[in-house]
Amino acid sequence: MEKLKDKFKRKLAENNYKLTKQREMILETILTKENWHFTAEELFSAVREKDKDIGMATIYRTLELMQNLNIVHVLDFNDDSRKYEIYLEETHHHHLICKNCGKLIEFSDQDINYFESELEEKYGFEITEHKLRFYGYCDKCKK
C-alpha cells in the first residue's frame, strides 16, 4: 500500500499537483479494499464513512486526475456504470464477468501471454495492450 501511495505522491508532484487531505483519503480508501472494482458512487459511500464533508464532485475530479496519472483505470463492461480499479503496472490480469449479478473475478494466465507472443510472431504485429473478458455465470447465479 505504501508503495502505491508513494507512486501517487510522485506522479502528483511530477505534474504540479498537491497531495491534498481529500486525495489521500480517497486513495487510502481504494487501497484498503483488495481487488476492488468500484463505481464513483461506491467510492463516495466508502469515503463518506470517514469524512462526511467530502462531496461527489471531489470524488469525480480525483478519479479523473487518478485516471490521467495512470493510478486507476476505467473498466468498460458494456453496462450502464463506469467501474474503476487501481492500476498496477506489474500485474496484467483479465476479468470473468457474471451476466446475472455483475460479479467480477480477476485472473491471470501465462498461456494468454504465450498466445500473444505467437500472434505477434505469426502476423508481424506488435501488440501494445489487450483486454480479455469472459462473460457467463458465477457459482451462485448458475444454481
Score class of each variant (00 low, 15 high):
Val74Gln: 08
Lys99Tyr: 13
Tyr123Val: 02
Cys101Trp: 08
Val72Met: 00
Arg82Gly: 01
Lys9Ser: 14
Lys143Val: 13
Glu41Thr: 08
Leu31Ile: 07
Leu96Ile: 12
Gly102Tyr: 10
Ser108His: 13
Tyr137Asp: 02
Cys101Arg: 07
Leu43His: 05
His130Arg: 15
Thr58Cys: 00
Cys138Ser: 09
Asn16Trp: 11
Lys7Arg: 15
Arg23Asn: 09
Gln110Gly: 03
Leu119Glu: 08
Leu119Gly: 00
Leu132Ser: 02
Asp111Gly: 10
Met66Leu: 11
Met66Ile: 01
Cys141Ser: 01
Phe77Ser: 00
Glu34Arg: 14
Asn70Gly: 06
Glu49Pro: 02
Glu42Trp: 00
Leu75Ala: 05
Cys101Leu: 09
Ala40Cys: 04
Phe38Pro: 06
His92Tyr: 12
Leu65Trp: 10
Thr58Pro: 05
Val47Thr: 11
Asn113Met: 14
Glu129Cys: 04
Ile30Pro: 00
Leu4His: 11
Lys143Leu: 12
Glu28Ser: 07
Thr128Gly: 13
Asp6Lys: 15
Leu119Cys: 09
Ile112Ser: 01
Glu120Pro: 04
Ile54Ala: 05
Gly124His: 10
Lys103Tyr: 06
Phe107Glu: 06
Tyr135Trp: 12
Lys33Glu: 11
Lys83Phe: 08
Arg82Cys: 02
Thr128Arg: 14
Leu104Ile: 15
Leu12Ile: 10
His94Met: 14
Leu19Tyr: 03
Gly136Phe: 02
Leu88Cys: 08
Ile30Ala: 03
Arg61Thr: 08
Trp36Glu: 00
Lys122Asp: 02
Glu116Ile: 13
Ala46Cys: 03
Tyr87Ser: 02
Glu118Phe: 07
Ile30His: 03
Glu121Arg: 14
Asp80Tyr: 10
Thr32Gln: 12
Phe77Ile: 15
Thr32Cys: 06
Leu96Trp: 10
Gly124Trp: 02
